[in-house]
Write a protein that binds this DNA or RNA. Structure first.
Lengths: 203, 203, 203, 203
DNA sequence: CATGAATGAGAGTTCATTCAT
DNA sequence: TATGAATGAACTCTCATTCAT
């Protein structure tokens, strides 16, 4: 019986989640302007009025649809030491594999981020958020890069630039490539990303 | 009298060019959906009715606005031997510098390409065009890469992948970085791009 | 135990009254169309679902919200002999003072009535009710007017018209004036209203 | 031929006027909130899109629909000396007749003004306008009232109050009365209004 | 050719009302 | 009985496109 109110709010949470999931899907495919609330509602199997019950405006829904996936991938970028271990080279290698995997399985992440990066004046708040995320990533990853540099396996480059060029290549990975699940392609891309850090000879 | 129709068509060409230029600017900033013909017309200093005199629909105008810049940058990707010379390493280095320069000065190129790449189902024709462009680039650049590999200065990687990862990092370069005209940043990015081809130690 | 249902219905009555009071306030300020049930509910400190428990539709709630204040002021218009005494002039003078006071303290009365009078086709039932009220007032007040006429202190005018012009001036009193609680203004207005009945020289 | 451009703008003016006329009609009947642009468009026999060609928003259209009639009636209130002549009593009498006539023939004036007066917070700009209009009227009419007072035919009352009570009775005149075109009723109302100024005995 | 008025499909948003809990 | 989530009709406003001038 004490679960009763919980199950109530549980149902609401589920519906909210369903709408958000639908929004992420549709927004990532069609962008903000060409997405209609009606389509999101249909995808979420609710009436379009219900969308407004959970999200006040389309704009707010978009923000949530961007920030929620961002929060989901954040740990894989910011908790490097929790997820990856070994030598700096090994850690970076694991990280890259994880990131490529992440985007290959949930390409919406990439699309939404690209949409925001392409329109900084249109989505200033979200852009700012991404900017901070980049800064955080740079700060988190720098010590590992520096250690690798001391070990002589990474280039003597400012860690910030190395991190940013890595994000650039990640970001620039074409969704069409990504969605092709040819493992050999991923491996190759991973190696190429790694080469931004140090001179890697595949064996 | 025979000049009359010529000067007329000259005037018309100029007007058409003004509209297209305005369209490139506005589309690159606001994307297809959030751009209105009225704004393009204002930017081009013509009435919005005139836009339709030169371009049948908004859709067609967008196509031209994407393809024209694409044609403009094509030579710098496809006529590698005309523009760049020296050893493979030198050629690739010159090429990268040229491309980064190109995007840093006219970031609309990058924006428009990213818009199309982010919506392949929405702009199938344009996407196809970009796809062909990538293929062409890969074919053009491969001999140079292979020669570099034979000389032992480039990684032993399939040239296609190297070319594609290069395009990825170019594409992923953030417009905000790009627009900052700090030369040191460009140089650094150039070096990082070069590292996708071979192990480069800055001196 | 027999009190239980009584106290229950007491509680219900209080809640109903709270909602009606809130409705009167909000409807008088915002009119029918721009009032939302949600705002009334908030004002009454109940959930908006509860409003529908007590009043089937917004339309019905509006009717009650108009008629209840009307019933509240009715005695002051229709029970002239109960409230006022003395010569016809004295009675009318007292009446006017009472009416001006009434509207000055609870301007919602005036607002709601004006809303209905301004939209006879929209609120036919309520308009009819007001019409009957006017007729009743005319009938009630006529004997006093006629007596005053016999005494030579009132104009020789059809009592109906005198009553109606009096209602007109009452109705036309601007709420902004009314809400300013300068007593001198009220007195002056009272005198002016009185002058519709007979030639009054202030001393 | 020089008329050509004139006739163009003439046509536009006519269409604009048709829309405004329709707006005045519908707004006066249904109020702001319950009026839809579609109905105004239908009444004006244009597509509803055309309404927005001439008036940016519904709000702006309402403002024009209130202010234009106001401007139309203003002269009859503010140019007293141009329209009326004779003794103060005669002038005021003519004025009242004119005003009652005005409202009896174009009752929209009255309705629109009442709507604004009933919602000062909702229509602050329009309310302010009406306030200024009242002030102007008071200033204009005061000399005539004062002269009448010197002649002993008007009450010794502050002219401002006399003017305001006159506006009150005008404003409070019920549209149902007004629209009944029984001349005897108008005459009677005119006399009653006059009695706010001085003790009038009908003969 | 150039212009911009006219049109109406289509989108976001509001809100009365219903009804399951 | 009280609540508030769900619904969808209805409204305002935008804007590509057409076409008369």
């Amino acid at each position: 019986m004490p679960q009763q109110p919980l199950s109530m709010s549980e149902k609401k949470k589920q519906k909210r989640a369903a709408i958000l999931k639908a929004a992420i899907k549709v927004f990532s495919e069609k962008g903000f302007a060409e997405t209609t609330i009606a389509v999101i509602a249909k995808e979420a199997r609710v009436s379009f009025g219900t969308v407004f019950t959970y999200f006040e405006t389309k704009e707010i829904l978009y923000e949530k649809a961007v920030l929620e996936p961002l929060d989901e991938i954040k740990p894989y970028f910011l908790k490097v030491d929790d997820y990856f271990s070994g030598t700096p080279l090994e850690k970076i290698q694991q990280m890259i594999e994880t990131h490529v995997d992440l985007f290959s399985e949930r390409s919406e992440f990439l699309r939404l981020i690209q949409q925001v990066l392409g329109r900084p004046e249109r989505f200033p708040k979200l852009f700012e958020e991404l900017d901070l995320f980049v800064d955080d990533f740079v700060n988190i990853i720098s010590p590992t890069i520096e250690e690798g540099q001391r070990q002589g396996v990474f280039y003597e480059e400012t860690p910030a630039l190395m991190a940013q060029s890595y994000l650039a290549i990640l970001n620039g990975m074409r969704l069409t490539y990504i969605n092709e699940s040819t493992h050999s392609l991923w491996n190759a891309l991973t190696v190429q990303a790694l080469r931004l850090f140090g001179p890697i000879i595949k064996n």
